[in-house]
Amino acid sequence: MEILLPYLLFALFQICFVVQLYFLVYRQGVLKWANSNSSPSNQNLPVSVIVCARNEAQNLQENLPLILTQNYADFEVIVVNDCSVDDSAHVLDQLKNSYPNLKVVTVTEHKRFKTGKKFALTMGIKAAKNEFLLLTDADCQPASNQWIKLMQSCFSEEKEIVLGYSPYRKTGGFLNTFIRFETVKTAISYLSAALHNQPYMGVGRNLAYTKTLFFRSKGFAAHLHLLSGDDDLFINQNATAINTAIQISPEAQTFSETKKGMVAYYRQKRRHMGVGKYYKAKNRTLITLDALSGFLFYTFLTVLLILKFEPWIVTGIFIFRLMVQCFFYPAIFRKLDAEDLVWWFPILDLFYYVYLNVFGVVGSVTKNLKWK
Rank of each mutant, 00 (worst) to 15 (best):
N44V: 12
S166V: 03
G294C: 08
T108M: 02
A221G: 00
K211G: 05
I317T: 12
P100R: 13
I188R: 13
P199M: 06
V107R: 15
V342A: 10
K211I: 03
N145L: 11
D340Y: 11
R205S: 13
Y99A: 01
E251P: 00
L95S: 03
L64F: 10
N130K: 14
A187S: 15
R54V: 06
N243P: 02
S293W: 04
V80M: 08
A34H: 03
V314A: 05
M323E: 01
T288R: 11
F318G: 08
S48N: 10
L24A: 11
V19C: 12
L60I: 13
L307V: 04
T136Q: 07
L289Y: 03
T183P: 00
N206V: 07
G229C: 01
P167V: 11
L301S: 10
V91E: 10
H272N: 05
Y209L: 09
W147S: 08
C154L: 02
K282A: 12
I161W: 04
R205N: 08
F220R: 08
G363Y: 05
V358Q: 02
T115K: 08
F309G: 02
Q152M: 03
L9H: 02
N206T: 07
K118E: 02
L296E: 04
M273N: 03
A331C: 04
S217W: 00
V18T: 09
F295S: 10
Q152R: 08
L233C: 10
G261V: 07
Q325I: 13
N283H: 15
D93S: 14
V47F: 09
S38K: 14
K269V: 11
F10C: 13
I242M: 05
Q146A: 11
A338H: 06
E76D: 15
K370Y: 04
